[in-house]
Amino acid sequence: MLTGCIVALVTPMQESGEIDFIALRKLVEFHIKAGTAAIVSMGTTGESATLSCDEHIKVVLKTLEYAAGRIDVIAGNGANSTAVAIEMSQRLENSGIVAGLNVTPYYNKPTQEGLYQHFKHIAQSSKLPQILYNVPARTAVDLLPETIGRLAKIDNIIGIKEATGDLSRLLSIKKLVPENFLLYSGDDATCCDFMLQGGDGVISVSCNIAPQLMNTMSQLAISGDTKAALKINAQLIPLYDTLFIEANPIPVKWACAKLGLISSADCRLPLTILDVKYQQTLENALTEVKLIS
């Protein structure tokens, strides 16, 4: 079981828009040294929506190459087309990733039955373990607990990244899924409470820049050390408040560049670099959390 803090890794870009694989290698090493539990390659934070399928696969394979078995890699393999998601899952099945992260189909707004059939067909298309990903603020569709319960009965659907920020969802889901079904927070601002209430970990944006703090807080929360976990979580609140000041991953890429983790804060269009009017606010947060002086 993968528990603790898993980083939703950014995909470094050059100013030209090409992927910066030198910086990607550096990021993988950074998280190995920091003790991060695992890497999600090519999730939302990795700008999966703006990379071609071939680029997507290449980033995952390069991440695996750089990891060299020292840290587990989960790959984003979702799409709003079931056929495309199946293709991605099959292409990655024997790559070495430990699981696929499957976002709810965005834009086309399927029904709960449509969601069930979508994920069922993906899971049945390969032996790759699948983690569901529910983030209605980005996809305009909500995977409800009852549907999650149905999907949890499929052997290789092993968990969910629940990114609604609604802590009452955790209890509802726990009642409907097997005990070994993995429950990850996808919302940094509420992840500490999520883990204190029985969640298995967090797939985190903040972990890109504050892995030691996020890792320690997560381990404390999972072990039930409420006081110590909340103390560290309080230190991280300035990051939670500012890393979503514009659409993710715009702010976190700017922060990564500010900390020297990547060479450029550039994103793929239609995302742009962090607006100048927000840069001082984010810099102040980095200072407050003592990531820069």
Rank of each mutant, 00 (worst) to 15 (best):
E15M: 07
L274A: 00
C5S: 14
F244M: 14
E246F: 04
T50W: 03
E47A: 02
I32K: 00
V40C: 04
N80Y: 06
T216K: 14
N284D: 15
G186R: 03
A163M: 01
A85E: 05
D275R: 14
G96K: 08
D225T: 15
N80M: 07
E283L: 13
G69M: 12
M13H: 09
A68F: 08
S263L: 08
I273G: 07
S168W: 03
S16I: 03
I131W: 11
T147Q: 06
I6R: 01
A152Y: 05
T216G: 00
D166W: 00
G96C: 10
M88I: 15
V98N: 05
L269R: 14
A68P: 07
G35C: 11
L230H: 09
F30Q: 04
A152V: 05
K231Q: 13
D193T: 08
A285G: 06
A49G: 03
P270S: 12
H56Y: 11
G186K: 13
D20N: 08
I250D: 03
C192I: 01
T287G: 07
H31W: 01
L167C: 02
Y107F: 15
D200C: 12
N80W: 03
V60H: 01
D275M: 11
L167A: 01
A49T: 05
S126Y: 12
L64W: 02
T11P: 08
V205L: 11
Q130K: 11
G165N: 03
N80K: 05
T147I: 05
E55P: 06
T36L: 06
D200F: 12
C192R: 02
I97H: 12
Q212W: 02
P12Y: 01
Y278N: 15
L220F: 13
I232V: 09
N233H: 15
A49F: 08
C191P: 00
C191F: 11
L213A: 10
G43N: 01
I222C: 10
S16K: 02
I273R: 15
P110D: 00
A221D: 11
L213C: 05
S206N: 13
W254D: 09
A137M: 14
P129R: 06
M195E: 09
I19P: 00
I262W: 06
L24C: 01
G201Y: 04
K26N: 11
A123I: 11
I154P: 00
L24F: 02
G17M: 08
E179D: 13
L182C: 15
A247D: 10
S125K: 02
T164A: 05
P238T: 03
A38Q: 00
T287V: 13
R25W: 00
L176P: 06
S52T: 14
Q279P: 01
Q280V: 12
I173W: 03
T63V: 07
D275T: 12
P238I: 08
A255T: 04
H56M: 03
D193F: 09
L27H: 02
